[in-house]
Write a protein that binds this DNA or RNA. Structure first.
Length: 418
RNA sequence: GGCCCCAUCGUCUAGCGGUUAGGAUCCAUGGUUUUCAUCCAUGUUACAGGAGUUCAAGUCUCCUUGGGGUCACCA
């Protein structure tokens, strides 16, 4: 943990900042509070609530094996709990806490309801290692209590740590916080999420082109709902979210829905904000005079910022090649002459062409005078401008490019037609 | 294996004893569009199984089955 701890801290804080979570107070390092934990350990020792255990690791392993052979639950047998004999030489003792030996450890979980765990399920667990370093369940309880934590919300996998931590809270006389254990999120196959499932770091979602609002909205609806509402602003989440109506069962990660939400949030993000975000994806259109037009023409088409960036680049860059299938279909028959005529018309009308509708009027005129279908000009023009048969509206693209670039692309395309 | 938790469309979910079991996503079809996408409309698909309790059970109880979690001198 000492290794790269600064780096790790920064990464966590950065992720918090990205999703818009604020944190107060300074970062507290457990490794720098050993004296404090030591004080509590000594206190428990003195009060007889904890004791030294001289069992060696080998002995412990042997005990465990024996229990496993008998198909019993593996647990420490408490042999040093009330030890009065002479202590073994050459063994640095660990400190174990005295957990209740009978009855139930009961707590009210905010999402799961009442949880009853037999005291026999919790053994006298180690609170300080042989080298004196305190253990997780011990320090967590102390930190939480000292920081005045009122609500613990954590993953399901910590449910079994709770009775242990309660033992610590009680031994030290601290007030119990509210515990809430949220079920796990599984991958799309319903299995435990692992590194192979893609993102392991919150910031991976940023690099994949997701908006933090979309991620948050996606996550909040996993295991939680508010009637039929699907879209939640951060303010709404804060106002409406209650741990008690989180589902008890685990849910599956669903990429389609995340993508759908992300597309929704992209469509609803103002263009100037999108332009700033896009800088992180290799597209700098900040000073572009057709910025609004460019984003209006593309934002409906990109499910992620990465896709949106691709869409923009597709329009901005002169196609270096034409999709084979598309060109075969589009560049046939009279396509060549139609394109040439269209280019001439554009040049003739150049001074009057500004808005998408102006360009549309030229297309209308061409279709009318040549008595052809819209597709006759639409298809070849599209392939000329974008290199493929799909993409944004032609009139918008031309308005963004301007007459010169449009004509250039048309001429380039004509040159490839046999 | 012991202990704990869970179980409604493929997926996310609504439902809190009486509903034609609702919404979203996905998929399919149709419409809009010069293309794709968007958008709109329509459609397919679910109460894991079995016993009870009750006039009435997706909803309550029990069992079975199936999932998940956890059993460290890790965090």
């Amino acid at each position: 943990m000492a290794r790269n701890s600064e780096e790790a801290k920064d990464a966590i804080l950065k992720a918090f900042a990205w999703v818009g979570m604020a944190c107060d107070g300074d970062v507290v390092y457990q490794s720098k509070r050993f004296d404090l934990y030591k004080k509590y350990i000594d206190q428990l020792l003195e009060e007889g609530k904890a004791y030294k255990c001289y069992m060696s690791k080998e002995e412990l392993a042997a005990l465990r094996e024996e229990q496993m052979a008998k198909k019993e639950r593996t647990r420490y047998d408490g042999r040093y709990r009330n030890f009065t004999g002479t202590v073994p030489q050459g063994v640095d003792p660990v400190i174990r806490i005295k957990a209740p030996q009978e009855g139930m450890i009961t707590f009210e979980d905010g999402v799961k309801g009442t949880i009853n765990i037999a005291a026999t399920e919790v053994d006298d667990f180690v609170i300080a290692r042989a080298d004196g370093a305190p253990t997780y369940n011990f320090v967590v309880a102390i930190d939480d209590a000292l920081m005045g934590l009122t609500d613990v919300i954590r993953g399901d996998d910590h449910l079994y740590n709770t009775p242990k931590q309660i033992v610590v809270y009680k031994a030290l006389g601290f007030n119990l916080p509210n515990f809430n254990h949220v079920a796990m999120i599984n991958n799309e196959q319903g299995k435990k999420l692992s590194k192979r499932d893609g993102a392991t770091d919150v910031m991976d979602y940023k690099t994949m082109g997701y908006l933090p609002e979309a991620l948050l909205n996606f996550l909040v609806r996993l295991g939680w709902s508010h009637g039929d509402q699907e879209i939640f602003s951060i303010e709404e989440m804060i106002a409406l979210f209650e741990p008690k109506n989180i589902n008890k069962s685990s849910s599956n990660y669903n990429l389609d829905k995340l993508l759908w939400l992300n597309a929704h949030y992209i469509k609803n993000t103002p263009n100037d904000e999108l332009a700033i975000l896009l800088k992180g994806y290799g597209v700098d259109i900040h000073g572009h005079d057709k910025l609004e037009l460019l984003l209006d023409a593309t934002k409906e088409r990109g499910k992620t910022l990465v896709e949106l960036a691709d869409q923009i680049n597709l329009i901005l860059a002169t196609p270096s090649a034409y999709d084979e299938k598309s060109s075969k279909k589009a560049f046939k028959g009279e396509a060549k002459t139609i394109l040439a005529d269209f280019a001439v018309m554009l040049q003739n009308w150049e001074g009057t062409l500004h808005l998408p509708c102006d360009y549309h009027a030229v297309m209308d005129k061409l279709v009318e005078t040549k008595e052809i279908g819209f597709g006759k000009i639409g298809m070849p023009l599209r392939v000329s401008l974008l290199g493929s048969m799909t993409g944004s509206g032609l009139d918008e693209i031309m308005a963004i490019l301007g007459v010169d670039e449009t004509v250039l692309r048309i001429e380039k395309a004509i040159a490839t037609i046999a």
